[in-house]
Design a protein around this nucleic acid. Structure first.
Lengths: 235, 235
DNA sequence: CGATGTATTGAGCCGACTCAATTAGGGTGG
DNA sequence: CCACCCTAATTGAGTCGGCTCAATACATCG
């Protein structure tokens, strides 16, 4: 994440996109780097029968990092899920700022490493785990990510950085949080079908690994609080 | 790839491993960065029923890049496929050398971007494409990679950097090259089963998209040379 | 030649997908 | 508050690609 000073140094422009607007298409030459200020973005690939969502981007996170490669081509499309505000940085400016600020470059590199680990992990999950485990891991990953945002105060209506997902993530008293994704979104992130997610989630509920209540999905982030004990929410 | 000077600056040690030796395990804290000098390495994850191979590493390529993250944990296991020689660099040394050499850091970052693009692409392929297309794309990717190595003279018995795969990759006069992978290796890289690869490859042969001859697999890297025309091998 | 590893093939199973229909929840204009 | 609309949630029946299991054929190497 670039600080305000870095954004200024890189001549970043704040652009606003309406919901469903495509910021760039997979396969086209990349020219820009992005940092989401407000809203939500999905990175995805189109298929004949379905879309595959590589990841969701939350405010404060960057995307389009691959622009710093030589002769870069977008490996995915980017679409605004809600009305969004995005800092847009030109490739050359980004390269220059990274050159001028070694610490930022190091931080940028760590972001790449995180992305790489995420995709590596998801890739082996897809191959090696049954649908139920994949769903749990996905929900767990995003739940922790959103809780961290929430706890850092980066979210909510008082912050400049709104995120429809984090805001909809309601913590329950008993250590469960509501999962702010639709079945379709979960399916798209795993390459599964809505119906499969539907049925698998019902099984997970029956097995006590998730909870279903009034069509909403709940995930346990912490052990149920026992009387008198104070167990912090995992982050 | 680090030059000899960089390796020296980073106090890299050349270590040799026998075939089938595991260099590190998925899940354990990472302490080192590696650059393959000689041999071949596979990065993989173990599953209950099968292994999943994230990628193959050839001489001159690096692996374990994720060690530069904060609190790094290996996202995959690394195993020597043949007898290998590997330059091993301590995390702290790598960080220091990258700090001292901005150009190297930039190059390192581009390597991460390449890896990210590769995994992103493979991930959408897994979800969106049928087995036949996945096999073609995989073979195409590695064929080009190995041909590039070959053409750059980094391979062969006269070079210090041997690679059992590149050496086995024989070019035919008609623009076909032999694919140096076993069906099992292809299956592991795609998360498929040997039998599935077997059957799909036969279909691809029938469809003229691949060629099977005496149990060996051939991939067309260039158009069949017409009389009098000089079509270069794609790289 | 025997051992070991890879290639092949066939039969049957199964999880995930396809297709189609129905129900529920939320938001909007009247 | 109600009719209407649209998205999301559900459910059932049937299909299919890829997997499982088992057996056989090749190939290479000591």
């Amino acid at each position: 994440m670039l600080s305000a000073a870095h954004l200024t140094a890189a001549r970043a422009r704040l652009r606003r996109y309406p919901a469903k607007h495509t910021i760039y298409w997979e396969g086209e030459p990349s020219s820009f780097f992005y940092q989401l200020q407000d809203g939500a973005v999905r990175l995805y690939s189109c298929g004949q029968r379905q879309d595959f969502v590589h990841s969701l981007v939350f405010p404060g996170e960057t995307f389009g990092e691959t622009v710093i490669g030589t002769n870069p081509v977008a490996p995915s499309s980017a679409e605004a899920l809600t009305d969004t505000a995005v800092w847009v940085v030109e490739r050359a400016e980004l390269l220059e700022v990274l050159r001028q600020h070694p610490d930022l470059h190091a931080q940028f590199t760590r972001r790449l490493v995180d992305l790489l680990c995420f995709h590596t992990h998801m890739r082996s999950n897809t191959t090696l785990l049954p649908a139920a485990e994949q769903i749990l891991q996905l929900v767990s990953y995003y739940a922790h990510k959103m809780l961290t945002r929430r706890n850092a105060g980066n979210c909510g209506t008082t912050s400049a950085q709104h995120c429809c997902f984090c805001e909809r993530l309601l913590e329950q008293a008993d250590g469960y949080i509501s999962v702010p994704f639709t079945r379709q979104q979960i399916a798209d992130m795993l390459g599964l079908r809505v119906e499969t997610v539907m049925r698998t989630v019902k099984e997970l509920d029956a097995a006590g690994r998730l909870r279903l209540h009034e069509h909403k999905l709940y995930y346990r982030t912490a052990q149920p609080a026992l009387a008198g004990s104070a167990i912090p929410i995992l982050s």
